[in-house]
């Protein structure tokens, strides 16, 4: 147990050093969510109003989307450093050390989640400046972070599995770029599911992003309940479990 903690601690520290040594990276990590938020919060602000949007300002409606999309975007990139380690051979050095293979993966989860929460915090602070009112208070904010973590874990699993399946980071970016856009449009990020054409609504209902966003919205907008809260948590936990089961096999094959 002590050994695991020492391994995970040292490996996680490595990712934070990487982050701190790349100021440009840090800057983008901070600015990107703001950019998302500024664009999202304003693009439909003149047309999207009324009860379908919870009778709140569009920025309030979009806060949950900005939070969830930032988590997805960041977590999808979570496998890249491991892919780089694989390409450069550094991964072999880690694998030749007497460490648990899980420690390598765990360090990525901890790091990615920490960055996710950092970015969520920035978005929430800016939302407050934009007079978005968080109705549910402190307990709601805790649940927001929890929803962010549940969404991030599943997506990070996908990203780490891709890092082991693919051969180069060029391939990786191509596939991730392809996943990202439909994932956003087939979700409740831009408009509520109730306003979508039937077929899109059906697709949106099987998209975990929809559940994360609806859950977050329920924490921000008074009376918003597109889905019952228990269903939202159930769906996200199920999503994480499925991602875990699929990627565990890939990890076992590649990490020995």
């Amino acid at each position: 147990m002590n050994h695991s903690l020492q391994e995970i601690g040292a490996l996680t520290r490595r990712w934070f050093i990487h982050l701190s040594r790349e100021p440009v990276h840090v800057m983008f990590a901070l600015i990107q969510p703001l950019l998302w938020f500024a664009l999202f919060a304003n693009i439909f602000s003149r047309v999207a109003r009324g009860s379908q949007f919870g009778n709140v300002s569009y920025p309030t409606f979009m806060t949950a989307s900005a939070l969830a999309l930032t988590v997805v975007g960041n977590s999808l990139m979570g496998g890249i450093p491991l892919l780089m380690d694989k390409e450069l051979g550094f991964l072999n050095k880690l694998l030749a050390a007497p460490i648990s293979r899980n420690s390598i993966l765990m360090s990525r989860f901890l790091f990615v989640n920490a960055v996710n929460w950092m970015q969520m915090t920035i978005i929430l602070l800016v939302a407050l400046l934009m007079k978005v009112h968080l109705e549910t208070g402190a307990a709601g904010i805790v649940l927001l972070y929890l929803l962010g973590a549940l969404l991030g874990i599943g997506v990070t699993f996908i990203s780490l599995a891709l890092a082991f399946l693919l051969h180069s980071h060029a391939e990786f970016f191509a596939i991730v770029g392809f996943i990202n856009l439909p994932l956003v449009f087939v979700s409740s990020a831009l408009i509520p599911v109730s306003l979508m054409p039937i077929w899109l609504a059906w697709l949106a209902k099987i998209n975990p992003l929809t559940y994360a966003i609806d859950g977050m919205r329920a924490m921000i907008i008074p009376g918003w309940q597109a889905q019952p809260i228990w269903l939202i948590f159930f769906a996200l936990v199920l999503f994480d479990a499925i991602c875990f089961l699929i990627s565990a096999r890939i990890f076992r094959r590649n990490l020995g």
């Binding site: 020492q6 391994e7 990487h18 790349e22 051979g89 050095k93 030749a96 050390a97 007497p98 460490i99």
Partner: peptide, 28 residues
């Protein structure tokens, strides 16, 4: 064992000392 493969194996973003710290921790 200690394994020094033919490819260069240190982490380019870390200092020499940080590289050695990481390695030491991986060996508990």
């Amino acid at each position: 064992i200690g394994y020094v493969p033919q490819e260069q194996m240190c982490d380019n973003y870390l200092t020499g000392r940080e590289n050695l710290w990481l390695q030491g921790n991986l060996y508990h």
